[in-house]
Amino acid sequence: PEQQLAMLGKAHEFFQICDVESKGFITRGDMQRLHNELPLSLEELEKVFDTLDTDGNGSLSPEEFSTGFSQFLAEQKVS
């Protein structure tokens, strides 16, 4: 439970890094802007966006984002 809260807090922090205009969602363009801040290629950021955008509506909700983050954490624990 405590870990869950910490995870959500982190996910929220990261969401805000991506959602610079505080729109409440992340667009493909927001994701590509991270190219300047993160050591990832535009192609990789596209892939991240597509992976997180599970409903394929072209924007990432905080829920989609935190779901992706918790999946990442789960995989980290397994490996």
Binding site: E13, I17, P39, L40, E44, L45, F72
Partner: peptide
């Protein structure tokens, strides 16, 4: 196999992305 290299799978690329965010956060107090 080119698909085996790190970051080629969606899981790998997602891990890359979140790891970068994590190190970005810890990198700046």
């Amino acid at each position: 196999d080119p698909n085996m290299k790190a970051g080629a799978t969606s899981e790998g690329v997602l891990a890359n992305f979140f790891n970068s965010l994590l190190s970005k956060k810890t990198g700046s107090p």
